[in-house]
Write a protein that binds this DNA or RNA. Structure first.
Length: 876
RNA sequence: GGGAGUAUAGCUCAGCUGGUUCAGAGCAUCUGCCUUACAAGCAGAGGGUCCGGGGUUCGAAUCCCUGUGCUCCCACCA
């Protein structure tokens, strides 16, 4: 069958993916082999694939496929995350568009809508992953709200509660007025923003004097319950101890309190205290038993405490109150001011500090083993620079607010008793039992109990992921968890190092007494080539599926891997996809060449073919060894580049040219066979990077049975390696390059065979002569002793080569010029070597090997200089 | 405000324990080629104050100090 000159990935990719699925090659069950496990960072169930996923999943697939080919029982568990806030927000928005308000629905009705949405949009992202070639065990696909998963979450909650690690309390939390829920500290993103600093006048009671207070949030004066100054501030010494001031516009009288918390140098040194709306003020309020006046509704509008502003949004009030204060003469001045404002990670609205009843998880004890594991490299972070960040966070960890005022998620298993108090249990039945015991009321019914309406933070389910996907919480001794846990590698972005990675580590030690994974590969962020983050609003994020259509999955995979070292951002450019596609085409055409040769069964390999074969065998071995080191260190893009160069430059550029028979001529059987072996090994090395093309060509190479696949072939291992063979070939390549140069400079066509003369020395190897003859387009190679006069010359290492040409072709002037330049360079080089060697301290202190090297350099340089000088003399 | 990282070719990055793998790779650029696998290609070439300044050392891209630029993380200064 004739192969097309251009490789078209679109024609084969889906075919092979279906083939792999049909034969269940991705499926894993425990057996006697060594396991290799990766759990996917579960994407949002309703999300769509973006470039960041492409990068992560490509890296995971490379690791998994390589492990599989190393004979390990590779298991890559896919799944999705219920992403409570994000998904609930989407469902609410969708319902709103349909004219349904969430508040009109019961919890059950709302959840029905949410599940319907999940059924419709969930899994799209997983299907997209298939296009990329991801070799996930789809039979294990898991969703964080699957019944068994939810059971695990509830079980863990009850367990932690019974251990006394979970508590309930009124705290100042980060309130998201759009999502109407509390957030954990990690879900708040602080951003510098331009604001104003307002100087407000608080009249001192019984006086006409004012105390001026600087604030960024004038609307919160409605909740002021004190004014605070530093007791050491000279400006306020004159005030009586029981001084009181009048809140502007509000008219409320509040006490002046004194606390060193106040920074004398900031603003006017006077601080208004609003315990309900600022974390620090809250602490002051506790300390001085101040009244707490909450002026906001949950959605950020003002409540009845907001007086005439009731019902208005907090930002509208800020504008209005500025005008009103000014009109009342209570606004001294307004300055521009830059401060840090917290925004919700999900809804992007400014966070409102708010007092509310929430559930918390104590973290300090959980953090200890998790910190130690990373510091001791029991869990390795790649790149290691993240260890610092990790340590800093773990050492300053705060309790985790785990409750969310949402419906989409696992409902907190706390049940309130009619007479007050609550019980925590895995099931309503158990809760009832506990409630009866607790209340001493045996007539209590399930309907008397009211379950806490809140759900758990999404991360409270995903922190169990490496355990729960193998059902290791519900059935801690089951075969799967015993076999697959701890998993091997985790690949994810550093942005969720704390959200997720750190918490999984804590959960691992808490619930399994063991780490959840051994290595964490942290990818960079995918940016555009101008270093801008890819985002929908900028429109600079290409649709991965379009790219796959255009360049093929293999091409896009290569694009993601080229120049993306761990932890470094990847600057994505379509040109990278082109490079990936071109490489596919290169492999395709190399295969076309190799498979087109006719074989002469009787022919014996030429010396030149033997030379080429033994050289490439060495080079392949050497590369394999280097690849092992690359993978060991997770230098994946480096590994790819190494294979890329091996295939393109060494195999296609040199080796195939070396053994390529003249047009229409056959090749000998042994050379053809070993070349196919090389090709086969190259395909296997390439397979983890470009699964589709390699499968296609591997299938074409030889007749294969249904059910055979390159996926399950072994990764080749390094065998022979002879540095001398490699070194000698490098010298030969240099000679060939010189010849090519010489042809180009003198316009000598490639077809015109040249004679090469050589003055042999220890750097010239007669055995390579036949190959040199072929590669240089030479008619003959003569060994000579005397330098010819009518020839061009060049030197490789210490050996001098000549190409005799007709007198007219050689431009003596040009030749002299080049020789002089070469001489100058060599003399400069020698001078630098001599400088070192004449330094006694260098000779004394440097290791013998280094000194020897310098002496060898000197000998080579001197030999070259002598040869050039002689040549110069001869020509002039 | 605290902490960390980073600076090498036009671009993106390697460069591990200081010394022949020390100045590299890929891409881009330039020059020739439609040479029978591949123009998505082949052959060849150019391109660097290893951020500035000091220091340690026989020897520094590499180690130390300092300045500058950039990036990230953490943090309740109104």
């Amino acid at each position: 069958m004739e192969m097309a000159a251009k490789y078209t990935p679109q024609e084969i990719e889906s075919k092979w993916y279906d083939y792999w699925i049909r034969h269940r090659f991705f499926h894993s069950t425990p057996d006697e082999r060594e396991p290799y496990t990766i759990v996917i960072p579960p994407p949002n169930v309703t999300g769509v694939l973006h470039m960041g996923h492409m990068l992560n999943e490509t890296i995971q697939d490379v690791l998994v496929r390589r492990a599989r080919m190393q004979g390990k029982n590779a298991c890559w568990v896919p799944g999705t995350d219920h992403a409570s806030i994000a998904t609930e927000a989407k469902v609410v928005a969708k319902l709103k568009a349909e004219g349904i308000d969430k508040s009109q629905l019961t919890r059950e009705e709302f959840l029905q809508h949410a599940w319907a949405w999940k059924e419709k949009h969930g899994g799209i992202i997983l299907n997209q992953l298939r296009k990329l070639g991801a070799s996930c065990d789809w039979e294990r696909t898991t969703f964080t709200m699957d019944p068994e998963m939810s059971r695990s979450v509830i079980k863990v909650f009850v367990d932690l509660y019974n251990k006394g690690l979970i508590y309930r309390g009124v705290r100042m939390v980060n309130w998201d007025p759009a999502a109407l829920t509390a957030l954990s500290d990690e879900e708040v993103i602080h951003t510098e923003s331009q604001g104003k600093l307002y100087y407000l006048r608080y009249r001192i009671e019984g006086s006409d004097d004012y105390i001026v207070v600087a604030t960024t949030r004038p609307e919160t004066i409605l909740g002021d319950t004190a004014l605070c100054v530093n007791p050491n501030d000279p400006r306020y010494q004159h005030l009586p101890q029981d001084a009181r001031v009048i809140v502007p516009l509000v008219g409320r009288s509040i006490p002046v309190i004194r606390d060193t918390y106040v920074d004398i140098d900031f603003g006017t040194g006077a601080l208004k205290v609003t315990p309900a709306h600022d974390v620090n003020d809250y602490m002051l309020g506790e300390k001085y038993h101040l009244e707490v006046i909450d002026i906001f509704n949950d959605n950020g509008t003002l409540n009845a405490h907001g007086l005439q502003y009731e019902g208005m949004d907090r930002f509208a009030v800020r504008e209005q109150i500025e005008k009103d204060l000014d009109a009342a003469g209570l606004l001294e001045k307004v300055e521009a001011y830059t401060n840090s404002v917290g925004y919700s990670e999900r809804t992007h609205v400014p966070i409102e500090p708010k007092l509310s009843m929430q559930w918390f998880l104590k973290m300090d004890e959980l953090a200890k083993p998790a910190l130690k594991a990373v510091m001791d490299d029991e869990i390795r972070l790649v790149p290691a620079k993240f260890k610092n960040t990790y340590r800093h966070w773990m050492e300053n960890i705060k309790d985790w607010c785990i409750s969310r005022q949402l419906w989409w998620g696992q409902q907190i298993p706390a049940y309130y008793l009619p007479q007050g108090g609550y019980v925590v249990a895995e099931t309503p039945e158990e809760a009832l039992k506990l409630a009866r015991e607790k209340s001493g009321d045996a007539s209590l019914q399930l309907s008397d109990l009211r379950q806490d309406p809140d759900v758990l933070d999404t991360w409270f389910s995903s922190w169990l992921w490496p355990i729960s996907v193998f059902d290791g919480i519900n059935h801690p001794d089951n075969e799967e968890i015993q076999y697959y846990y701890p998993t091997n590698d985790l690949v994810t972005g550093p942005d969720i190092l704390f959200f997720w990675v750190a918490r999984m580590i804590m959960a691992g030690y808490e619930f399994r007494g063991e780490k959840p994974f051994s290595n964490v590969y942290l990818t960079g962020i995918v940016r555009d080539k101008l270093r801008r983050k890819m985002s929908k609003s900028l429109g600079n994020s290409p649709d991965p599926l379009d790219l796959i259509d255009q360049y093929g999955a293999d091409g896009v995979r290569l694009a993601m891997l080229l120049s993306s070292t761990a932890g470094n951002d990847i600057l994505f450019d379509d040109a990278l996809c082109e490079q990936g596609r071109n490489f596919g085409n290169k492999i395709w055409n190399a295969f076309r060449l190799v498979s087109s040769w006719k074989v002469d069964e009787k022919a014996v390999p030429t010396q030149s073919n033997n030379t080429a074969v033994s050289w490439f065998a060495c080079l392949l071995s050497k590369t394999l060894r280097e690849l092992e080191a690359d993978f060991e260190a997770y230098r994946i893009s480096e590994a790819l580049m190494r294979v890329y160069r091996l295939f393109w430059d060494e195999f296609s550029g040199w080796y195939l040219e070396m053994i390529k028979p003249a047009y229409g001529q056959p090749i000998d059987r042994p050379t053809q066979e070993v070349t196919l072996t090389f090709f086969d090994e190259l395909l296997r090395i390439l397979h983890p990077f470009m699964p589709f093309l390699t499968e296609e060509l591997w299938q074409q190479m030889a007749p294969r049975q249904d059910g055979e696949t390159i996926m399950l072939q072994e990764i080749p291992t390094p065998l022979v390696e002879d540095q001398q063979v490699l070194d000698r070939m490098e010298l030969l390549k240099q000679v060939v390059t010189h010849l090519r140069n010489l042809r180009k400079e003198h316009n000598i066509p490639n077809k015109e065979a040249l004679t090469l003369q050589v003055i042999p020395d220890e750097n010239y190897h007669e055995t390579l002569a036949p190959l040199l003859k072929k590669m240089g387009g030479l008619s003959q190679i003569e060994s000579i002793q005397e330098k010819p006069s009518d020839a061009l010359s060049f030197r490789v290492k210490t050996t001098e080569y000549f190409v005799p040409l007709a007198a007219g072709v050689i431009n003596v002037e040009e030749e002299l010029k080049k020789l002089k330049a070469e001489l100058e360079y060599q003399e400069g080089f020698l001078a630098s070597v001599m400088k070192k060697l004449s330094n006694e301290r260098f000779v004394q202190n440097a290791p013998a090997k280094v000194v020897e090297n310098e002496q060898a350099k000197r000998r080579d340089a001197e030999a070259k200089i002598t040869a050039i000088r002689e040549r110069l003399q001869q020509l002039s």
